[in-house]
Amino acid sequence: MLRFILKRSLIAILTLWAISSVTFFVFFALPANPAETMCGKNCDVRTIAAIQKNLGMDKPLPKQYLDYHAGLFVGRDFERQGREAQHCPAPCLAYSFRTNEPVTSIIGRAWPVTASIVVGGAVIWLTVGISLGMFSALRRGTVFDKTAIAFSLVGASMPIYVFAILLLATFVFGLHLLPYPHFVGLLEDPVGWVKALILPWFALAFIFAAQYARLSRSQMLETLSEDYIRTARAIGLSKRTVHLKHAFRAAITPIVTIAGIDIGGALGGAVITETIFGLQGMGWYAVRAIPNLNFPVIMATVLVAAFFLVAANVIVDCLYAVIDPRVKLN
């Protein structure tokens, strides 16, 4: 087991390194003039020169590449023309010259928001989605099943930006049931936290719940037709035991796997949800960084999102090996 985890982690690190290299290439080597692109508004020749110097772009590309990666592990100093160097402590993803802070401190602010949205949303979508799917599989062909199928099809066919705007128009501006979302920390004001996040949770959860309902329904149907379930029934085990202990456990395995990756992916930033509800999470920062040309931030969010995805992959691989007895590790 340990060997397996080590091997997977090693591959994951390799993957992250490859992603950071590609990201570096896209931002530093692909644009015609990266400093000018990063300079953004109010740019003049002197500012461009300063940025070039700041980001070390006056150095050859391989050197920049090494510096960039060294920063991730040991931090780095950004040189300044005739001034004290700007230190960026490890893990130095980048330094945002527009906001004058290491990108890690931006991520420190943004991540709790994204995590609040995703974790809350995930609780809803997993509960609603899986129970809906499981029950409709057990009551196959009934009105309940057909309603559940209709719900999941609607959810799966509705773009989230349409659904989110409808939610806002209905609950905030139409019925005045909820205030416009203003994020507050969970520990500061738990009620305010729920109030601010309830709409984003539902927006995110509706789309995902539909997918999980479809997925768990088909998984459950699949499992119920397996021979061992028939055997379990034949030997006289109660319906409850068969469904919960045997069928459910087998059916849920692949769903756990996928949920892990879904949550890992969303932790990198729920771009559309955050944008529409004005919540300053990772996705909000990434989108905001585009017109502001804060390329260090965009780059960092790409890396952080990749980190969560890769980490989720490793965890899920290990979980899978633990949960599913059929998987042999070698």
């Binding site: 989230i160 995902f208 969303a266 559309i272 999102a305």
Partner: peptide, 8 residues
């Protein structure tokens, strides 16, 4: 992969 892909 990305959440957005998941979202949409």
């Amino acid at each position: 992969t990305s959440d957005i892909v998941g979202e949409m």
